[in-house]
């Protein structure tokens, strides 16, 4: 029950916390933490302007993306060991749902007929081409020596255990790979600047330039929900064992991740577009490393 409430009400708080930490770093007051909620409420009351060259995909894309991401979120453990839904091998479904959400938005971007959105779509897909295999490799590696389990149990099985050096290393490695994936998926610095006003440099924002009103509100919510999914995976991975205070630690870790995103955004410049691809290969290499190590461990048995 509680995770469902969290899935509905928590996502919009995440960009608010990131913006607040950026504002504190900059030495100004900044927006309120609840500003994304006010923004959402305002957008609900606006009309929609749809371009005459757009087809039906533009209209249905935000709804499909939202639905896919919501269902995917139901399989993610959030602070408790169990997720709302779960079955053996459900991580494949989660991956495909997230890919569906992204794919439909990319199609809608190309549907609009604007050259910027086409460029943004191609950049987006070039990153996805590397990140999805990395995600799949990591999760496959984690179930290598067990039977096919649900995502929640995989994560809790491999979450940090301070008594075993091996689990410490693997959890940290996987968390860092997921962190880089989070930065790419959430369109944060150093991959993309969420506040940029330069349409030639945008990756994610350029795909939503043509949306307004209710569709735009849904898109903001979906993006925040995707951020919550990745942050939850990282947090759950770093919760030691079956701790009694797991939910509390979950929220603390969530908060720390958001503040760290704000810090990275304030202190680092954005990468050149061709360097982005280099960095996106890091999760791939980490996943290969983890996979190889887990196989070796099973075969070598230490």
């Amino acid at each position: 029950m509680i995770p469902i409430v969290m899935i509905i009400f928590l996502p919009l708080l995440l960009p608010g916390i990131i913006n607040r930490s950026k504002a504190i770093m900059a030495g100004r007051k900044g927006q309120s933490i609840f500003q994304p909620y006010y923004h959402f409420a305002k957008l609900l009351g606006k009309d929609e302007v749809v371009s005459s060259t757009a087809g039906f995909i533009t209209r249905i894309a935000p709804l499909i993306a939202l639905a896919a991401t919501l269902v995917a979120a139901l399989f993610i453990p959030m602070g408790w060991q169990k997720s709302v839904l779960g079955f053996g091998g459900d991580f494949v479904l989660v991956l495909y749902l997230l890919a569906l959400a992204k794919g439909i938005m990319v199609l809608a971007a190309m549907d609009s007929g604007s050259s910027f959105e086409g460029m943004g779509a191609s950049r987006e897909l070039s990153f996805t081409a590397f990140l999805e295999p990395a995600f799949m490799l990591i999760l496959s590696a984690l179930i290598y020596n067990g039977s096919l389990q649900s995502l929640a149990s995989i994560i809790s099985w491999h979450s940090i255990n301070f008594h075993e050096v091996w689990s410490l290393i693997s959890a940290l490695l996987i968390a860092s790979a997921l962190y880089i994936m989070l930065l790419v998926e959430a369109a944060r610095v150093p991959f993309d600047d969420p506040n940029t006003h330069l349409e030639l440099t945008m990756i994610h924002e350029v795909m939503i330039l043509d949306y307004s009103g209710f569709s735009l509100a849904l898109i903001h919510y979906t993006a925040a929900l995707k951020m919550l999914i990745y942050c939850s995976l990282i947090s759950n991975l770093l919760i030691p064992g079956s701790f009694f205070w797991a939910p509390l630690i979950y929220f603390v870790l969530l908060f720390c991740q958001l503040v760290s995103i704000g810090l990275v955004e304030s202190l680092m410049a954005r990468f050149r577009m061709n360097r982005n691809l280099e960095l996106v290969l890091v999760p791939v290499s980490i996943s290969l490393l983890v996979m190889a190590a887990l196989i070796a461990r099973t075969l070598g048995g230490w």
């Binding site: 100004r28 940029t196 330069l198 955004e265 680092m268 410049a269 954005r270």
Partner: peptide, 16 residues
Amino acid sequence: LAGDVAYLLGQNLLAA
């Protein structure tokens, strides 16, 4: 320039 490369610290310091 700092803002264009998303170097927010530089942008804020110099704007002030």
